[in-house]
């Protein structure tokens, strides 16, 4: 658990996540919804993986379980040697704090904190963070650090969110529809930042998207349907975000 500093630029190709017969069932009264149905998969260190699938295909549920936000109904999940499915609430908080960076569709910035302070929310508690200024420089916002979220555009806010996620030098970066609320030009900017972070820091990155065009920039593409892993493909050559057809 305390090896997060080594995690940053870990040996590419080693196993980052592994799931075994992973199931998630939501039960509300008599209604039973199977969100994940016996999923076995492996995600590798340093890879940028794209999860594709229609609404309700189970990709977000998978991301939530990988990120320690949700519990599996059955099956097992490992992050490296750490079995997430065996962790309690407190240990999952610790796991998120030390290893996981999240990026959401709606940014989830704290409106009363400036860009720099939003990043500091994370760097204040992480064991080996980079300076907030460096993280913001990485996403190209070095000049707007003292702006509040309301003073930033949507794309800029999402870049702050990415800076906040990577500033702790996380083992994995989990992004749920990071471009979902953005126009194509701004969306490309955000994807470029994610690509750059992945290339320059070697952070294992998982991106959920509806946008099939984005798959071209991934190392690996997992397609979900009805809670199952429908297909898995590996891109031999990756396309730069600027060349993605939106």
């Amino acid at each position: 658990m305390d090896d997060s500093s080594r995690m940053w630029a870990d040996a590419p190709g080693a196993v980052a996540f592994r799931t075994e017969a992973l199931c998630k069932v939501y039960e509300t009264g008599p209604v039973r919804v199977v969100a994940l149905d016996n999923v076995d998969l492996t995600l590798r260190m340093g890879e940028l993986t794209v999860l594709l699938g229609a609404s309700g295909s189970g990709k977000s549920t998978l991301l939530n379980i990988l990120g320690g936000l949700d519990h599996a109904s059955s099956g097992r999940v490992w992050y490296r040697e750490l079995e997430l499915t065996a962790l309690g609430d407190r240990a999952l908080t610790r796991y998120r704090r030390d290893h996981v960076g999240f990026v959401f569709q709606f940014y989830n910035l704290v409106p009363s904190l400036t860009a720099r302070e939003n990043v500091r929310l994370v760097t204040d508690i992480a064991p080996d963070p980079m300076p907030a200024e460096e993280a913001l420089g990485l996403v190209g916002l070095g000049a707007r650090m003292d702006h509040f979220p309301a003073q930033l555009s949507g794309g800029e806010q999402q870049r702050v969110a990415i800076a906040r996620a990577v500033a702790k030098r996380p083992g994995v970066l989990l992004c749920d529809e990071p471009t979902g609320a953005l126009d194509s030009r701004t969306g490309v900017q955000v994807l470029e930042v994610l690509d750059r972070v992945n290339r320059e820091t070697g952070t294992t990155t998982v991106v959920i998207t509806h946008n099939a065009g984005i798959r071209a920039m991934a190392h690996r593409v997992l397609r979900f349907a009805d809670g199952r892993l429908a297909s898995e493909e590996v891109n031999a050559t990756r396309v730069a975000p600027s060349e993605i057809v939106w």
Binding site: G67, L69, R90, T93, R96, F102, N108, L121, V122, I125
Partner: peptide, 13 residues
Amino acid sequence: RELASLRILGLTR
């Protein structure tokens, strides 16, 4: 929403 996102970022309860 703000508080929940802090929890997600790994801040303790």
